[in-house]
């Protein structure tokens, strides 16, 4: 495998479960040292893709090569060099924090001595030193997730797969996880993650693909995607009247584009303040006005007509 060859290459990758097609032919390349993201709503096919990359689910069609190997034939050898943080924590409730790491290390054939040493380093890295001797059961969701991340690092993997790493965590716990993942990124670890949070994708991903209905609808860095599919700023308007539809006509030609959501109207414009002024000039009195920068959420809305989190 040459240095320039991507760590993960997928061509026309398909996953079907009976009649249902979860992944409908995607092309992906992930290079060494990058943080690559799959962004999309629930059911977009992100987790199925991750399971195929993790070699625990065989592709139904197309080609997939990971670390220069075939995931069906060399699954065990590939998994030896992956770190996996699944969407649902699969920690061992009967073991302590430290034992979860040392026992897991043994599955990779790591010696007991090295396993203990690495467990202690990782426990410190994910800031669980004080809980090292406790069983996993009473830990908070954020602690469990951090432990799962530590577990995924126990074999010093070439690629770390993170499926929805912060779903279900409270904001503070999410920031702690992000901070740890950012550190990994700084160390040059290749990260592949799925998320339906645009802020997570923006914070962590060098490059990402937007998935919807099993297909890739856009690809690029977060900045590129926003530049390409959205305006610089967005104006969010709310009105006290229940029927927002009537405003759509009245707001016509302000900004580049308009999106009508159940509770608000989004005006896409490079200059948000100018757009707000234009709204005022038409004698419209919104109950609230918010000018913000475009995000990946807006990209997704534009590409699919739907929001990421529903």
């Amino acid at each position: 495998m040459s240095a320039a060859e991507p760590l993960i290459t997928a061509r026309d990758l398909v996953k079907r479960f009976g009649d249902f097609t979860a992944v409908a032919g995607i092309d992906v390349d992930v290079h060494a040292g990058e943080a690559f993201g799959f962004l999309g709503p629930n059911g977009a096919g992100k987790s199925s893709t991750m399971r195929m990359i993790g070699c625990v689910s065989a592709p139904s069609g197309g080609t997939l090569r990971i670390l220069g190997m075939d995931p069906v034939r060399d699954g065990s050898a590939i998994r030896a060099r992956l770190g996996v943080c699944p969407q649902q924590d699969s920690l061992d409730p009967e073991l302590t924090v430290r034992e979860n790491l040392t026992v897991y290390a043994r599955y990779f054939g790591i010696s007991r001595k090295v396993a203990r040493q690495r467990a202690d380093e990782l426990i410190e890295f994910v800031q669980l030193t004080e809980r090292a001797g406790d069983t996993v059961e009473p830990l908070s969701g954020g602690m469990k997730r951090r432990l799962t991340i530590a577990r995924a690092l126990v074999n010093d993997p070439a690629i770390v797969l993170l499926d929805e790493p912060t779903t279900g965590l409270d904001p503070q716990a999410r920031h702690l996880v992000w901070e740890r993942l950012f550190q990994l990124k700084q160390r040059g670890v290749t990260l592949v993650l799925t998320t339906h949070y645009m802020d997570e994708a923006e914070q962590l991903c060098d490059r990402l693909v937007v998935m919807d209905g099993g297909k890739i609808v856009a690809e690029g860095s977060p900045r590129q995607l926003i530049d390409r599919y959205s305006t610089r700023e967005v104006v969010e308007l709310r009105f006290s009247e229940a029927t927002l539809d009537s405003y759509v006509g009245k707001l016509e030609s302000i900004g580049e584009r308009l999106e009508l959501l159940p509770d608000r109207i989004l005006l896409y414009a490079d200059d948000g303040d100018a757009a707000v002024a234009a709204v005022g000039n038409r004698d419209l009195r919104p109950s609230s006005v918010l000018v913000r920068r475009s995000t990946l959420e807006d990209v997704f809305l534009h590409l699919t007509g739907r929001t990421l989190v529903d």
């Binding site: 993790g54 625990v56 699954g75 065990s76 050898a77 998994r79 030896a80 992956l82 996996v84 699944p86 649902q88 699969s90 920690l91 061992d92 409730p93 009967e94 897991y104 599955y107 990779f108 054939g109 577990r151 074999n155």
Partner: peptide
């Protein structure tokens, strides 16, 4: 219930 093997099978163990 414990979904232990999900974690195990993400490793080289078959």
């Amino acid at each position: 219930y414990m979904r232990l093997y999900d974690g195990v099978l993400a490793t080289p163990v078959q």
